[in-house]
């Protein structure tokens, strides 16, 4: 069964705030092998014009991926997660994520397409700081491969 296109435009409630910690940023930077002092040393980050250490460009995915579970696990949408692969990913930044941010994500289904039996779902995650300022928007495309025999 293809996904119901009437879900296009559906938004989900903002997620509870995720507090970005210095050590989480460091752990993530270590895991991707990135030694930049901007991720570790507040003085180095300040010298670049940031108020505190910043996170690597793909760090927001930790938060937006969890938020997108609302779509993936929406029983009304009925996506079969065992068939889903990550098709593409884009971030549009107002500013880098930084330590101390309290971030909330509002998820919207931007598009649903069907192509050669595959369902292609574009999920937008608007990431805001607790004060309301926009930080980054994530666009994630999920491809649900056609089940065998469909």
């Amino acid at each position: 069964m293809p996904l119901d296109p009437s879900f296009i435009g559906r938004s989900y409630p903002p997620t509870p705030a995720y507090e970005v910690g210095r050590e989480k940023i460091r752990e993530f930077a270590d895991a991707v092998g990135d030694a930049s002092p901007a991720y570790r040393d507040a003085d180095a980050a300040k010298a670049l014009g940031h108020p505190d250490v910043i996170a690597p460009p793909t760090f927001p995915f930790l938060i937006t991926y969890r938020a997108a579970a609302q779509v993936v696990e929406d029983p009304e949408l009925g996506l079969d997660f065992t068939r889903v692969v990550h098709g593409d990913q884009r971030f549009v930044y107002t500013r880098p994520v930084r330590a101390g941010d309290r971030l909330s994500v509002t998820v919207t289904i931007d598009a649903i397409k069907s192509l050669a039996g595959n369902d292609i779902l574009t999920v937008r995650g608007e990431v805001h700081e607790s004060g309301g300022d926009h930080v980054v928007t994530s666009f994630m495309t999920l491809v649900a491969r056609a089940a065998a025999g469909e």
Partner: peptide, 25 residues
């Protein structure tokens, strides 16, 4: 995607100078 970004951020010196980044897998 994170590894590829390092080519850009190492060049820039300031990773915060990235304003848009997208890839297809």
């Amino acid at each position: 995607m994170a590894e590829a970004a390092r080519v850009v951020t190492d060049w820039l010196g300031d990773p915060g100078a990235v304003v848009d980044y997208g890839v297809r897998f």
